[in-house]
Design a protein around this nucleic acid. Structure first.
Lengths: 118, 118
DNA sequence: GCATATAGTAACATTTTGTATACTAATGCT
DNA sequence: AGCATTAGTATACAAAATGTTACTATATGC
């Protein structure tokens, strides 16, 4: 165990990356943000199987990690826009790789959505 | 919510992929298998922060998903070798993308391991 | 006056993951 | 005889992640 770290550092670069985008829905949020900023409920509608609480949490964690930007407008009803930061943009190759693999290997869309996504 | 699926199908290709490799340590296991087959305890030593139980679980799930092959040799002491299947090999671009990003954006190795990994 | 929309929060339940320990069975080493 | 090794399983419990449901405030539309 010479390559074991005493503290909580990741043991390999893959583990390090997953420490940042390993959350259950982070990849999906990032995917939807790839084509531009989105409002909160807009993201929710894009991820119908995910609860509001989870969308919020994943967004907050990624904001804390500097991956996304949260822009609040002092309006009523409230308006909040989420977008990728420069750092978040660097994840694009990963997200696209996840997308490409899923399109080929995971059977999913039975119902074709009318609105095209990302 | 027109693009909402009634069943538990993933809502987008990224979600589909994460359903397969989204386990906490699956990416790390796959990373270590990228450079060839590994015995069980060999994998454990490569992932010092992960318990035996978790390594076993992630391997079993990925075996069930057809990503890795489990070769048991009827020997004593037992020998079990894990390797990527053809399907598992198709994940290589994703894992490498995760690795590349981690190497650039996540500070990790303080101690340089003597044995090179992957 | 009531429902709708927005972007959440609070409390609680469930699931997943982590920790720790004990156990297996055959062989080699001492 | 006793210990180590291999690749696990079993059990119990703790902690973390995620899911469920209800609720907020304020403005607009009906």
């Amino acid at each position: 165990m010479e390559n074991c770290l005493p503290n909580r550092s990741p043991g390999c670069p893959v583990e390090g990356t997953l420490g940042v985008i390993g959350g259950k829905w982070k990849g999906v949020v990032l995917y939807h943000l790839l084509d531009g900023k989105k409002r909160f409920n807009e993201l929710r509608r894009l991820m119908p199987g995910v609860t509001q609480r989870m969308v919020t949490r994943q967004l907050r964690e990624m904001e804390a990690d500097g991956l996304i930007h949260r822009q609040v407008y002092a309006e009523v009803p409230p308006r909040v826009e989420y977008s990728l930061t420069t750092k978040g943009e660097t994840l694009r190759p990963i997200i696209l790789a996840l997308k490409d693999w899923g399109e080929i290997h995971v059977p999913y869309y039975v119902i074709k959505p009318t609105t095209d996504v990302a």
